[in-house]
Write a protein that binds this DNA or RNA. Structure first.
Ligand SMILES: [Mn+2]
Ligand SMILES: [Mn+2]
Ligand SMILES: [Zn+2]
Ligand SMILES: [Zn+2]
Lengths: 141, 141
DNA sequence: GTGAGATTTAGAATTATTCCAATAAACTAA
DNA sequence: TTAGTTTATTGGAATAATTCTAAATCTCAC
């Protein structure tokens, strides 16, 4: 299992404040749920998990919170196929491995410098501020 | 502009036959439309372009044809954000550059060996059969 | 405590895609 | 050819994911 680097629950309120946003119970819970099980859940899955602890929360709020967390860059939205967006609280530069057998998604640590190295293939005139790498295949067990 | 490598209109019928599928006018037209303007159109955009030449075609057929072409591997389905799937007839291994200003997507040629090199970062037990690379940023003009 | 602005909420609306059942077209065998 | 069989297309209904909207609730500054 790769190491992960994330905002902590404590630093979240800090980060939100820096964007002029409030640290609401809903935002904190959505974030904590993402931290608890790092399996790249969909909004619906997050909703189900969150609802178990806060039965009155709405799906619209889960979407709102996820969007907010993505804007604040404490969560990454992951899209690599038709189908619902998945959410990832791993802040470290990492790639995604999509296991085609199980449908599960794993984080892959990137060696330092790899993203910059990959960027060197860009022709003149292209200036990338992010690089995303997605593997597809079979992962053992 | 990167070189592209694609199936030709002639080889399409061949490729379809190899999969036991028929080379229908709809499939050929959808494919030719993709070849004509390589801007990674959505199914809706393909539908509009195709309809100009074959006014009776249906959107369902466009989806069916695109799906067939993807299965035959003469077209790639591209998904890197919420929103409709985009389609690309470039068969060569290439990355995508998403220009955030214009929303347009450009093909980026990959130096030979780059994908294999990137695969070497995978830990034991991960066996990737494909690697996708997506850049986001600003492209000149 | 009040008022302004931010956030949440339920439900409606929208978008993209898939499904379905009926028709049409193409291929096969006689 | 033609009848039978399979494949493909079509329009419309259905579904899935997300976004929108307007009303209620909450928070913060005063
Ligand atoms: Mn999505
Ligand atoms: Mn899509
Ligand atoms: Zn991740
Ligand atoms: Zn492409």
């Amino acid at each position: 299992m790769p190491e992960t680097s994330t905002a902590t629950p404590e630093s979240l309120s800090q980060t939100l404040a820096e964007s002029g946003l409030r640290a609401t119970p809903q935002r904190e819970l959505v974030f904590n749920i993402l931290l608890k099980k790092r399996d790249h859940p969909t909004a619906d899955e997050v909703f189900a998990r969150v609802k178990a602890e806060m039965p009155t929360i709405s799906l619209a709020t889960v979407y709102n919170c996820l969007e907010t967390l993505v804007q604040c860059r404490v969560v990454r939205a992951v899209n690599f196929e038709r189908g619902p967006t998945r959410y990832c609280p791993n802040q470290k530069p990492h790639a995604h491995f999509h296991d085609e057998q199980t449908g599960s998604t794993h984080d892959i640590d990137l060696p330092p410098g790899l993203l910059d190295q990959v960027k060197t293939i860009l022709p003149e005139g292209y200036d990338a501020n992010s690089v995303e790498i997605i593997f597809r295949g079979k992962a053992q067990s």
